[in-house]
Nucleic acid binder design. Structure first.
Lengths: 208, 208
DNA sequence: AGATGTGAAGTAATTCACAGCC
DNA sequence: GGCTGTGAATTACTTCACATCT
């Protein structure tokens, strides 16, 4: 298993290569990718080394090879089915941001308690009642859940998700979650990031 | 300037102390705080050491001292004024999440291009036209901006913000921003986190 | 007995620097 | 000449372990 910073950068590299790098340029140098992805050339070469991607001193790395290697790491061959819990403003924002992205990751079901939201299709995603959580998760083979509902309900729903066999959680809630160690949690507390930005802004920190 | 992981933990510690720790318990042991904040006791003590907070072996740390020390680090004496750029779903979600939080951080102005959104008050926050960006930023002494609008417009608006003297950016956009090194950027690309969760979920990674 | 405070050790991640190649 | 690939050095962060305190 690769270290977290490497995974984070690979994800960034891929976005640069697919969205910013001119399609007609078949090769890229480490320093070019570094410039786009806000990394250093040495860092890029290190990361690519761990992926066993080889470049040539004269041409650099073949973009195609790079993308293949990154996908082999980041993408699941069967793809990932995701569930969204909570279809409030945040949930809807996530749904709206999503469809155009990584085709490997699909939000195939959303859940809410609000009757007016249930049994409708929002941004192409069907919204179910929370009562159906377990059945839908199992039926659609969902491995990852995005938590975008009030913090108070979080732990209880997480317990249900864990019992149903969820593998990963993306937690937009303030709640700190208790999960067995085989379940991966990404905590995305928005205020934490803003506090951090505030600290480094006033202390005139250097970038990144 | 303290390292990023320390700042992140301090922010977490504070949330635990203000929201989860029983008000009547005036003291807390490092291992207690560690359990709540998902850290280790040694880590907590290290962090508190760097803040020069002293505890007693018999009683632990005084919660009040802790909070004061953390605030002295994280909070700006004049507080922070924030601007929100983009009042779509994501922007509204951010506004909704905010008011109850850190009183030191206030979103005092929002901006959008959509005429139907402009000159209204959303979640207690006035929405201005983007045309007024510079004047409002200056008038309200805003140091930090939260970017929650389409990626395409991001860099141009960032340039304007930088010219107006912004100190920090919280970037929810896919765009990678070019800013002078004295401007701090927190990048919060949602899909990156989901890709990370997917990777560690399939590779059955350990938590955190 | 069971904490704290902290040097020292250990581990993780980044950067240097340079041989080898095109 | 400018790039890749990579051991070695460096820097950053975490954890250990223990003297000290109450």
């Amino acid at each position: 298993m690769l270290p977290k910073p490497v995974i984070t950068r690979l994800s960034r590299f891929r976005r640069v290569l697919t969205r910013q790098w001119p399609r007609e340029r078949e090769y890229i140098f480490s320093h070019e990718l570094a410039a786009f992805a806000k990394a250093t050339a040495a860092q890029v070469r290190r990361d690519l080394m761990t992926l066993n991607v080889v470049g040539s001193p004269s041409k650099g790395y073949r973009v195609r090879d790079l993308l293949d290697a990154i996908s082999a790491i980041l993408d699941n061959p069967q793809g990932h089915q995701l569930a969204l819990i909570g279809v409030g403003n945040l949930g809807r924002a996530l749904l709206a941001h999503f469809p155009n992205r990584n085709p490997n990751l699909k939000v195939v079901a959303a859940f809410d308690v609000e009757p007016t939201r249930i049994n409708r299709v929002t941004h192409g995603c069907p919204v179910h009642s929370l009562d159906e959580l377990e059945t839908v998760i199992r039926d659609k083979n969902i491995q990852i859940a995005i938590l975008a509902m009030p913090a108070t309900a979080a732990q209880e729903i997480v317990n249900r998700l864990v019992r149903t066999g969820i593998r990963g959680l993306v937690n937009y809630t303030l709640a700190r979650l208790d999960v067995p160690h085989e379940v991966h949690v990404e905590n995305l507390d928005m205020t934490a990031y803003i506090e951090r930005a505030a600290y480094f802004a006033t202390n005139s920190g250097r970038n990144q």
